[in-house]
């Protein structure tokens, strides 16, 4: 179970949560949702988002505790503070959901995403692609005489930046996993 120990999110009573509830300002939040690993549970979660008109920027899901039948869904969403509060409350209401943590409110957290890039080209472009991959610490996982597949891990912003640089060189295809996130520290 220790892998699941994530920091408990602050509540609306927390002295540190000073965000005004009803502001128009849109925020980006990362939510960690621990759910019963059962058929249809992902449909419940995304059905909530589509049914109530919330945004999903990225979503990842995988089983994290086989004996406890728990999966962890990491959702990146945007909305006003009131909408974000509603999302966490509505998620908490789903019977199959065990815990909901707003990692953005709870404190510092680490976010990582993995992406695969296919870049085609010849001559100087290939050299430039390798040079940039080196700068971004992306590794080559497949190559032909006319193409590379790079693997890169990092924050979503870093992957965006890498994509922007690769696009003029010959980026033809990209696959991203979406964000996985954990709170920092021992708790």
């Amino acid at each position: 179970m220790s892998a699941l120990k994530i920091k408990k999110g602050s509540t609306s009573h927390s002295a540190y949560n000073l965000r005004p509830t009803f502001s128009d300002h849109e925020e980006r939040h990362t939510l960690a949702v621990l759910v019963e690993n059962e058929p249809g549970v992902l449909a419940r979660v995304i059905g909530l988002f589509s049914g109530r008109g919330y945004n999903i920027e990225s979503l990842t899901v995988a089983e994290v505790d086989h004996t406890g039948h728990l999966s962890r869904i990491t959702i990146v969403t945007t909305g006003t503070p009131q909408v974000i509060n509603q999302i966490t409350a509505q998620l908490g209401r789903i019977v199959s959901v065990h815990e909901v943590h707003d990692l953005t409110v709870a404190g510092r957290s680490v976010e990582r995403e993995l992406a695969l890039f296919k870049v085609t080209g010849k001559g100087e472009d290939r050299v430039e692609a390798l040079r940039l991959a080196d700068v971004f610490r992306a590794s080559v996982v497949d190559s032909t005489l006319e193409s590379f597949v790079f693997e890169i891990t990092g924050t979503p912003e870093k992957i965006d930046a890498f994509a922007d640089l690769m696009r003029p060189i010959g980026l033809v295809e990209m696959a991203r996993t979406g964000v996985a996130a954990l709170s920092r520290g021992a708790a």
């Binding site: 609306s12 509830t21 009803f22 509060n85 509603q86 409350a89 908490g92 209401r93």
Partner: peptide
Amino acid sequence: IDPSSINKVIQ
């Protein structure tokens, strides 16, 4: 009894 009712419509 339902936390999602709080601040849903009226602060």
